[in-house]
């Protein structure tokens, strides 16, 4: 394995991290307002699909991005209305919504493109790529950051913005207070319901970015059910980060690495097993995380 190959693997890792990171940020944004959003998967998939459809008709990356983000937000809004306004159980809304998006995208795919499976070509354009020419002096670093899109970098910036929002602004403070106790926040004149709905819609916008990158970041393609559990992987990432947006970067990078390994190891191990790696690692990771937390709790008890 030479250096450039390693750089290429790291490059793929960045690409795979972005959708997970965005969805994880969306997940923790909801969790911080005491909303358990299970429909992340659906939000991602809807965004991917609508972005590709917009791309097919306009061949314009920016319009596709807007359309994808809008679709994510729209699905999230429906989820918010059901879950928060009508008080339907989160699991029921989430599962039904994920399945609904899955079937609607498969349905529309056949109506619009007349095919099942994958959609590719049609002069569709990918997202704008940034090439760090100032890194040309080192081929390794250059390869690492080659051809990443603007949205890939945006993910890390958004994580920092969310951190600042939560801990440095009044509005973010209200958001956190709703997460700790909705009724207490209500009694102080904060409209907790509105904040929760807003949180879910923002998670939809974030997932929208993730979904668009997933469909248009590398090869511009849509495949039936192409998010394949990334929404749930992101939930794992968010819970491992204990809903802290900066830690979420680290946990998302971990899952990004696993997703990238599942592709790059295909040359060495049978692809059926490598495909299973990210999912098994998610199970393993949240288990290890649980062990660490329980040890911490035990220690805390001893000190007391």
């Amino acid at each position: 394995m030479n250096d450039l190959y390693l750089a290429a693997v790291i490059n793929t890792t960045f690409r795979y991290t972005t959708p997970v990171l965005f969805a994880a940020l969306g997940s923790l944004f909801c969790t911080k307002a005491a909303v358990f959003n299970v429909a992340l998967e659906g939000q991602l998939l809807a965004a991917s699909f609508v972005a590709i459809v917009a791309n097919y008709y306009t061949n314009n990356a920016f319009i596709s991005l807007l359309a994808g983000v809008g679709a994510g937000a729209f699905i999230a809004w429906i989820v918010a209305v059901f879950q928060i306004k009508w008080k339907v159980r989160d699991m029921v809304v989430g599962t039904a919504m994920n399945l609904l998006v899955q079937s609607v995208t498969a349905f529309l795919m056949q109506i619009i493109f007349g095919s099942r499976g994958t959609v590719q070509g049609f002069g569709m354009v990918p997202l704008t790529k940034i090439n760090p020419t100032f890194l040309k002096f080192s081929p390794f670093l250059y390869r690492m950051f080659e051809d990443l899109s603007t949205i890939d970098y945006l993910g890390y910036i958004v994580a920092i913005i969310i951190f600042i929002y939560f801990y440095k602004t009044v509005s973010g403070f209200h958001h956190l207070s709703v997460g700790i106790s909705g009724t207490a926040a209500d009694s102080l004149g904060i409209n907790s319901q509105r904040i929760q709905i807003r949180a879910v819609v923002i998670s939809g916008i974030l997932c929208g970015f993730g979904g668009v990158v997933h469909a248009m970041g590398n090869v511009t393609v849509f495949a039936e059910n192409m998010t394949s559990g990334r929404g749930f992987i992101a939930m794992g990432a968010a819970s491992m980060a204990q809903s802290h947006s900066l830690v979420a970067i680290a946990s998302s990078l971990f899952f990004g690495t696993m997703l990238s390994l599942s592709k790059t190891l295909q040359g060495y191990i049978n692809s059926y097993f490598t495909e299973a790696i990210p999912y098994l690692c998610t199970v393993l990771a949240i288990t290890i995380y649980g062990v660490i937390i329980s040890i911490q709790k035990r220690r805390a008890k001893k000190i007391l």
Binding site: M235, G236, T282, V283
Partner: peptide
């Protein structure tokens, strides 16, 4: 304490 929802689905 690994969330049953995530592990079963994964």
């Amino acid at each position: 304490n690994a969330s049953l929802i995530i592990t079963t689905l994964m």
